[in-house]
């Protein structure tokens, strides 16, 4: 058991624990913290895999911004964000579904491992020393992946504007009431009220 495997083991435990906490936690704040733990665990993994730049980005962007944003929104929503005691759905169905999906995913992972162990015995080759460094990633980023890089900037700006537009409190939009929904009657000139009150609705009309 080398230092590396212990370190790997620790990070793995952190990630899985975090994920489980996020999923199981009653209180969403505890869920957010679970998420934080997972992200930090993943960052550790990156370091193990010589992806120093990514680890930094992960910690700064993910842990620094996204999780904080979650917590910020949680605080904004306050008590209502709490989980409502539902329970009308039978737990058996949900757990069975969950286990089913987990079984499928794990089975696929196991088969994939078998193949790869067979083919390339999954052993990590040796690396040049600046493999995961900022310079090499940056070089790649600015040479091959320049177009996606520029596009991602546009994406981020648009999402900012979108977020503001959606979450703006400003005017109070009327809720869409069911009766003025578009339907065939609207096409035929307003809600259908009996045109001739005197006319008894013929009961034998068809369709």
């Amino acid at each position: 058991m080398t230092i590396g495997s212990v370190y790997f083991f620790l990070c793995a435990i952190a990630c899985i624990a975090g994920a489980l906490v996020t999923v199981v936690a009653r209180n969403p704040i505890r869920g957010a913290l679970g998420l934080l733990l997972t992200i930090v665990g993943i960052a550790g993994m990156y370091l193990k895999l010589h992806a120093q730049f990514l680890a930094a980005v992960q910690v700064i962007v993910y842990a620094g911004a996204v999780v904080i944003l979650f917590v910020f929104v949680l605080m904004l929503l306050g008590a209502d964000a709490m989980e409502r005691p539902t329970g009308n759905r039978s737990p058996v169905a949900r757990i069975a579904g969950g286990i089913g999906i987990a079984a499928i995913v794990l089975f696929t992972a196991y088969r994939a491992i078998q193949v790869y162990s067979r083919a390339t015995n999954g052993h990590f080759p040796s690396l040049s020393e600046d493999f995961g460094s900022v310079k090499s990633v940056g070089k790649q980023l600015y040479s091959e992946a320049l177009a996606p890089f520029e596009l991602s900037t546009a994406l981020l700006i648009v999402s900012v504007i979108g977020a503001i537009a959606v979450a703006r409190t400003g005017h109070k939009r009327t809720a869409l009431s069911p009766n003025n929904l578009t339907s065939a009657h609207r096409f035929f000139g307003g809600p259908v009220e009996p045109r001739d009150a005197a006319q008894p609705i013929t009961k034998d009309s068809t369709l």
């Binding site: 045109r195 009309s205 369709l207």
Partner: peptide
């Protein structure tokens, strides 16, 4: 549009 009471059903048919 200008029919009787059940005009829309008749128009559909």
């Amino acid at each position: 549009v200008w029919g009787g009471v059940e005009r829309i059903k008749a128009a559909y048919k």
